[in-house]
Nucleic acid binder design. Structure first.
Lengths: 235, 235
DNA sequence: CGTGTGATTGACGCCTGTCAACGTCTGTGG
DNA sequence: CCACAGACGTTGACAGGCGTCAATCACACG
């Protein structure tokens, strides 16, 4: 299932063109990291790691999209993040020294770099700026998580779906036709919003009737952002 | 509303008897911290900080209980944490350099030490062990937050309430009569569980009818832990 | 003793989850 | 090329959970 990708990306490449955590590393540290990491190509559907397994390292996304979800009662999934190029996944468990608290499954064919735990820990030890950046990142994510808790607890499905669509647009952007660049099954969408698949389907067609969105199979185009924002109660 | 507390606790005191973050500080750093911090006594109901305000520092809880909540649609509150002796609140916003994302209100009369942002930042800069401990703490909390997201999205009120009661017992313990040492209004309980006050009331009396709990005003005694755990779907 | 806050209870109805049936599309194998 | 299986999408029916509203009760406090 898992093949070695022909081209192994250099860490320098990633550092240069994105707001990577690793931009704080010295040249020497970057070289070492480049040596220590290993890269693999994953196909859609492949698992990167499983909830409950020991966290032996984290993964840096060079290309593709990976979804992280928790499995709840009766196998129902809750998608926590859709991670894309430049994102790092699994680091939370590595640092907390806990088993992975989510499962990572590839959503769009992806090239991932694996960074072993001890390398991460060493970098945190050695490089202040790096560990501070990581601290900031986690704090940001924690704040975000708190928002999501409040949202799910208080908002209706309609409001949460509107919000989810807006978030998807802002993180993945549109293609040339104005459709969201990411395509999800209805079930995946429901696992983000935290509701039943059928509820998402009904709500989507309501939005469509109201001309807030356009649907074309799994592709979604947002037509009336203002109104969606109003529904979503966005700040 | 806010009075100076007669006794100002020394940081040494806190470090010695709890798993404080600050145990990683050198003696010198601890002395400086002791000098830089300021202490205040707060009464029940007092606000420590408000959601949206600039984070000028964080607070270390010497005694008492402080609740942190987010305010959602129509003023509905979602309690994120009940912080107690030894906990530090507000540090997330300080580190992320964001406004406070929650409001902190005193639930039981409390003595809090205020630590200005720049002091925290300096300590993070200077002391590796400290910043690493903080990193770990945030990662742990983030994992916990992800669990809560999944819970709220998937569990029923009954399940979440059972879980909440168990969590309250494990973090605040029981008094000599076996009642939870923390007392909450029904509304506060509903703001933890993420539901309506009336739903909590009804569910509590169901639990009572089933002899899972005993009620005495706001005091709650857990009678059948096993069954509550079964309801809560706890690991 | 009036006032106010919190707790309870009942009525009501909408939101949502669940179940079932059916349509659609795609890839596979004969 | 067609039949078929399997995954996904859609729709309808239905009921139970849960939120909302309103009335009443309990209790503390000035």
């Amino acid at each position: 299932m898992i093949k070695q990708k022909p081209k192994i990306p250099s860490c320098n490449e990633c550092v240069s063109d994105m707001s990577s955590l690793f931009r704080h590393l010295t040249n020497e540290q970057l070289e070492t990291l480049n040596y220590d990491k290993s890269c693999q190509f994953y196909h859609r559907g492949d698992y990167v790691f499983h909830e409950g397994n020991r966290a032996t390292g984290c993964y840096c996304i060079y290309s593709g999209v990976v979804k992280l979800y928790k499995t709840g009662i009766e196998g129902k999934k809750q998608i926590i993040i859709l991670a894309k190029k430049g994102d790092i996944i699994g680091y939370r468990s590595v640092i907390a020294a806990e088993p992975f608290c989510t499962t990572a499954q590839v959503h769009e064919d992806a090239s991932l770099c694996f960074i072993p735990s001890d390398v991460i820990h060493k970098l945190i030890q050695q490089n202040h700026a790096f560990s501070l950046a990581m601290l900031k990142l986690v704090c940001k994510e924690l704040g975000e998580a708190n928002n999501i808790i409040t949202d799910i607890a208080q908002k209706t499905v309609k409001e949460r779906l509107a919000e989810a669509l807006l978030v998807l647009q802002s993180s993945f952007g549109n293609d040339t036709d104005g459709f969201l660049r990411i395509t999800l099954t209805r079930e995946e969408l429901s696992n983000i919003v935290g509701t039943a698949t059928e509820s998402v389907i009904r709500q989507l067609s309501d939005f469509k009737s109201d001309r807030l969105i356009e649907l074309c199979g799994r592709k979604i185009k947002l037509l009336n952002i203002k109104q969606l924002e109003r529904y979503a109660n966005m700040p």
